[in-house]
Amino acid sequence: MAHLSRLEFTEQELETFFRDLNNILVHFEKLDTLDLSNVSPTSHITWTSPPVNPDQPVEWGREEEVMRAAPKVEDRYFIVPKIVDKQEG
């Protein structure tokens, strides 16, 4: 999984993750015992008043960190392999 997400971890971190993931899986197994035959697969609760943002821009101001973390940056663009089978738009 670490390989899939292209993240690097120490042995110790990996151990912690393993334990956490295991707990999550155990939790799902518990959920599996519930009878949900009358509930549609994608339904969930509805917010009455959802959290919303006001329409006022705020600068995040930490773009440099993202630039540094990106595999390749040129003139502030993130550089990616070219994909030609889909046209712009």
Binding site: Q56, P57, W60, E63, V66, M67, R76, Y77
Partner: peptide
């Protein structure tokens, strides 16, 4: 003035690449 799900500005014309991001 701000984006749909974050507070970044939408006025991108003339702005440097990736300057309105979060």
């Amino acid at each position: 003035r701000a984006k749909m799900f974050c507070r970044c500005g939408t006025d991108y014309i003339g702005k440097g690449p990736n300057s309105l991001t979060c």
